Amino acid sequence: MDPRLSFVTLAVPDLDAVRRFYVDGLGWPVELEADGEVIMIRVADKVVLSLWSEAGFEAEVGPIRRGEGVAPITLAHNVGTPEEVDAVLAAARTAGAVHVAAGEHREWGGYSGYFADPAGFRWEVAHNPGPIGQAVL
């Protein structure tokens, strides 16, 4: 099996709210949409972000574990400079994101901050000056 990630699927409680955030607020273009069921957005050449209604997700995948705390996953958006981190964080807030953490210099040598989308999923916005960070730009 080749190492590959083709889809990132997030089960969301309010598909309309995440559509307003990602599509209307951030301006991300929809690749495919089934009204009330799923929105698919191409986020890289061969990677799609799939925002799926919780009901549809549970019908196919199984019950969602619910409870206190944050989902044990983060999504990351890497940029070329610390200033771009701050600009993306501001744009996300303008689009309706919940502020989680302002950009700051990290022990690993980069600069990053966090926001949450309307479903609560955490996005890291990062400038990683190392080789792996530069490879994804």
Rank of each mutant, 00 (worst) to 15 (best):
L10S: 08
L15T: 12
D16Q: 14
D16H: 07
A17N: 09
V18L: 03
R20D: 05
G25H: 11
L26T: 06
P29K: 09
V30Q: 10
V30L: 13
L32P: 01
L32S: 12
A34R: 11
G36M: 04
E37K: 14
E37Q: 14
M40Q: 14
R42M: 09
D45C: 00
K46Y: 03
V47C: 10
V48L: 09
V48S: 13
L49D: 06
S50T: 09
L51S: 06
W52Y: 09
S53H: 10
S53W: 05
E54M: 10
E54N: 06
G56L: 07
G56H: 11
A59V: 02
A59Y: 04
P63M: 01
G67S: 06
G67H: 09
G67Y: 03
G67M: 01
G69Y: 04
G69L: 02
V70I: 11
A71V: 11
P72E: 01
P72Q: 13
P72H: 11
I73L: 12
H77P: 04
N78M: 14
V79R: 15
G80D: 15
G80V: 13
G80S: 15
T81P: 04
T81F: 02
T81K: 04
E83I: 12
E84L: 15
D86L: 00
V88W: 14
L89K: 02
A90Q: 15
A90K: 09
A92M: 11
A92N: 02
T94R: 11
A95Y: 13
G96F: 06
A101P: 07
E104Q: 15
E104S: 13
E107R: 06
E107H: 11
Y111M: 11
F115Q: 01
A116R: 15
P118Y: 06
A119I: 07
A119D: 12
R122E: 12
V125L: 08
V125P: 09
V125K: 06
A126F: 07
H127A: 05
N128P: 05
P129T: 13
P129E: 10
G130T: 15
P131T: 15
A135M: 10
A135P: 07
V136C: 13
V136P: 00
